[in-house]
């Protein structure tokens, strides 16, 4: 783009990798647009890899684990300094 960015940034961790991204953007946009990770979630029904599709809260394909909490619709969460983000794992037979 023509004019340089003059926004403040925050740092988040995706799968341990540090990303410096503009403040105010969504976690899904930060991960997809800055880490380019391929899939961000294993689908619980068919096990296939999925990634954010709509970026506006419609498709539920952007589920990730944010600060230890699974199943977060990451396109509706704003990045925060130090946020820990991981791919959404396949649900195992965990104790609930």
């Amino acid at each position: 783009m023509s004019t340089p960015l003059t926004t403040t940034t925050v740092r988040i961790l995706f799968e341990g990798q540090e990303l410096e991204v503009p403040a105010g953007i969504s976690v899904a946009a930060a991960v997809a647009g800055y880490a380019h990770p391929g899939h961000t979630c294993k689908h619980p029904v068919d096990g296939s890899g999925r990634a954010p599709f709509c970026f506006m809260g419609v498709c539920f394909e952007c589920l990730m684990e944010i600060n230890g909490l699974p199943d977060v619709q990451s396109c509706l969460v704003t990045v925060e300094e130090g946020m820990q983000v991981r791919r959404q794992p396949l649900p195992e037979s965990i104790k609930l």
Binding site: L5, T7, V21, P22, I25, S26, A29, A30, A32, G33, Y34, H36, P52, F53, C54, F55, M56
Partner: peptide
């Protein structure tokens, strides 16, 4: 639309 949001977040495809 999603890609547009991604670009507006300063990211790349």
């Amino acid at each position: 639309g999603g890609a547009d949001i991604l670009l507006r977040s300063g990211g790349t495809l």
